[in-house]
């Protein structure tokens, strides 16, 4: 397959993902709700956004944050698709039932979140879904914010098949024994030896979970186990500094963070 711009100039394979967009280029995507079959036999809803065209496309699995499978995550899926990634965002709260995202999230909160085993299974199933696509390039990464950051670190540490992970301020990767629950029986950091891919971590100095001290503990564990990682700690930023509709939004840090994400992923996803 030879990709051409609107004037017929040929682009190298996948080069279209890295060139600076100009107004003469064709661009298109499709985004819709699909279902993903999980190992426990469930069919969970997922938002699937991908570029049009035969690819091959790398894939991205998005793990939504504690506030739920909401509009921000749909936008986020389309952002990754815009950058050339076949992107799937599974509804990790699917088994709770269906209502407005905030009502579902409130219920998840009242239950102490969702079981880690279930989240890992759903993210792994989503990863396999992307890799099964005929236009996959065989590489799949994962991205998550807040509890989603924790979930992608956990998934990439417990199952093989992820090629890169982006952890945005995932709290409770480092956990005291007092924080362990039936849903969260093991701290993700304790699975670090099993981490199977490089990690990009974006954090804020003013965040309380993960605090800079906890990020340092996580970094030390990655070093100890010889894992590839790239951590960035932003000044004047706390938790959720990408969320343009929330008070913690920090424009400069968010722009820089997105640039770091789209510099990191091509190195590992082709």
């Amino acid at each position: 397959m030879v990709w051409r711009n609107i004037e017929g100039v040929a682009l190298e394979l996948n080069e279209w993902r890295f060139v600076v967009y100009t107004t003469d280029m064709y661009e298109g995507m499709i985004a819709e709700t699909v279902t993903v079959r999980t190992d426990d036999g469930a069919a969970i809803n997922a938002y699937f956004a991908r570029p049009l065209g035969p690819g091959p496309h790398p894939g991205m699995v998005l793990a939504h944050h504690m506030p739920g499978w909401d509009e921000w995550y749909r936008e986020c899926a389309r952002k990754f698709a815009h950058h050339g990634y076949a992107t799937i965002s599974p509804d990790l709260y699917h088994r709770i039932g269906h209502a407005s995202p905030e009502d579902v999230a409130a219920h998840a909160r009242s239950e102490g979140g969702i079981p880690d085993d279930q989240a890992v299974g759903d993210l792994a199933a989503s990863m396999r879904f992307l890799r099964s696509l005929p236009n996959s390039n065989g590489k799949v990464g994962a991205f998550g914010t807040c509890s989603g950051g924790r979930h992608v670190v956990l998934a990439a540490s417990r199952v093989s098949g992820f090629d890169a992970v982006v952890d945005c301020w995932g709290g409770r990767v480092v956990m005291d024994d007092s924080e362990l629950t039936a849903n969260n029986p093991v701290a993700p950091i304790d699975y670090t030896s099993g981490l199977s891919c490089p990690v990009l971590g974006l954090f804020g100095e003013e965040d309380g979970s993960p605090s800079p001290e906890q990020v340092a503990i996580h970094e030390a564990a990655l070093k100890q186990h010889g894992k590839a990682y790239e951590f960035h700690m932003y000044a004047d930023a706390g938790h959720g500094f990408f969320y343009y509709d929330r008070a913690p939004y920090r424009q400069e840090q968010a722009v820089d963070g997105w640039q770091k994400i789209f510099a990191f992923l091509p190195k590992h996803l082709g």
């Binding site: 504690m66 506030p67 409130a106 909160r109 009242s110 008070a247």
Partner: peptide, 15 residues
């Protein structure tokens, strides 16, 4: 049933 939490709000513009 009532749940009282200290966490991310949905509407209020606080962390």
């Amino acid at each position: 049933q009532v749940t009282v939490s200290y966490d991310h709000p949905s509407e209020m513009t606080l962390e």
